[in-house]
Simulated assay, not measured.
Amino acid sequence: MSTFFDEMKTSFEAVPRKEGEISTLEFLEASESLVKLFDLLGSSAFSIVQSDMNGNINKVSSKFLSDPINCDTLQKLILTEVKEKGKKTATQGLLWLTRGLQFTAVAMRKCIDNQTWELSKCFESAYGETLTKYHSMLVRPVFKLAMKACPYRKDFFEKLGNDLTKVNEQLLAWVSSLESVVEEIMKFFESGNYGKGL
């Protein structure tokens, strides 16, 4: 029986990283696969999270498709936009997408580390640690509503796959890779203050 992770087009584990540079194409595919995780949460409340992430994926994707040679890694993509001195649409998209990925990584890590926690607690706690500081007073209640609409942990894990041992192994590997990619991107943003004003 296949699991949610088997069905992914690209997993974060498969994203090539040469000398700390992250391949743009596979990163985008892995991010698209991650967004499908919110379908399993089964609540329309999460559509705001999905549409936000998809919008940011599109911003990065448009830039990549317009200049695939100079934007073949995320680091080069940011530096290309810096050089162009224009609107940093893709850089902004990547920054917000990475924040969304970090929120997902923290929530799923909490699920792994706290076997008795329900999903809503994992996501609420992750939101408090990650996205809430970037969100306005208008956006926060919408996200908080989405967290409360999480399905029961047991039901969610059943949707990930029938073989729970396999699902847990794959989830751990996936989250670890996701955390590592997020950390790499955040480090690069900080190294040149590329997220300033975005």
Rank of each mutant, 00 (worst) to 15 (best):
P16I: 03
L198S: 04
E29G: 02
Q92F: 06
E13W: 06
A90T: 05
L28V: 11
A30G: 05
L178D: 06
E7H: 11
G93S: 03
K144L: 13
L145R: 13
L40C: 06
A90Y: 06
D113T: 14
K18G: 05
T24N: 10
V106W: 00
V175E: 13
Q102M: 08
E19G: 10
K133F: 05
T98Q: 10
F123P: 00
Y194K: 03
A126M: 04
S136Q: 08
Y194H: 12
I78Y: 03
T104R: 01
N56G: 01
C71R: 01
V82N: 04
L37P: 06
G161R: 07
N168W: 13
E26R: 09
D155F: 12
K121M: 09
E158A: 15
G93R: 02
A107Q: 00
L25G: 07
S136N: 09
L95W: 08
L97H: 05
D155C: 09
V35F: 03
V175M: 10
F4I: 13
S62T: 07
K196R: 12
K166Q: 15
K159T: 09
K59D: 04
T80K: 06
N114Q: 09
A90H: 06
S180K: 13
E19N: 14
C122F: 01
S2N: 13
T80A: 09
D39N: 13
W174C: 11
Q102I: 02
N162F: 12
E169V: 15
T10D: 12
M108E: 02
D67A: 10
G86P: 00
E84N: 11
F143L: 12
K196L: 12
N54C: 01
L95E: 03
F4A: 11
Y152L: 13
D163P: 02
E190A: 15
K154C: 07
S191C: 05
S180W: 08
K9C: 14
M186W: 08
K18R: 11
L97S: 02
Q170S: 12
E7K: 15
K187P: 00
N193K: 14
E118V: 03
A14Y: 05
I185L: 12
P68H: 03
E21L: 07
F64A: 00
M8K: 14
V106D: 00
L145E: 09
L25S: 11
E118F: 06
L95M: 11
C122Q: 01
Y127C: 05
P68L: 06
F143Q: 04
M53T: 03
K154H: 14
G161A: 12
K133M: 09
L178S: 10
F12P: 05
K187L: 04
L164D: 15
I185R: 09
K196M: 08
T116L: 07
I78P: 01
L119C: 07
V142S: 12
H135N: 08
Q50P: 04
D72M: 00
S11Q: 12
A107W: 00
D155I: 11
S177T: 12
L145M: 13
M108Q: 03
K83H: 08
G192M: 07
V142I: 15
K187C: 02
K133N: 08
E7T: 10
W117S: 07
L95Y: 12
W117I: 05
K36D: 13
T91Q: 03
G55S: 04
C71S: 10
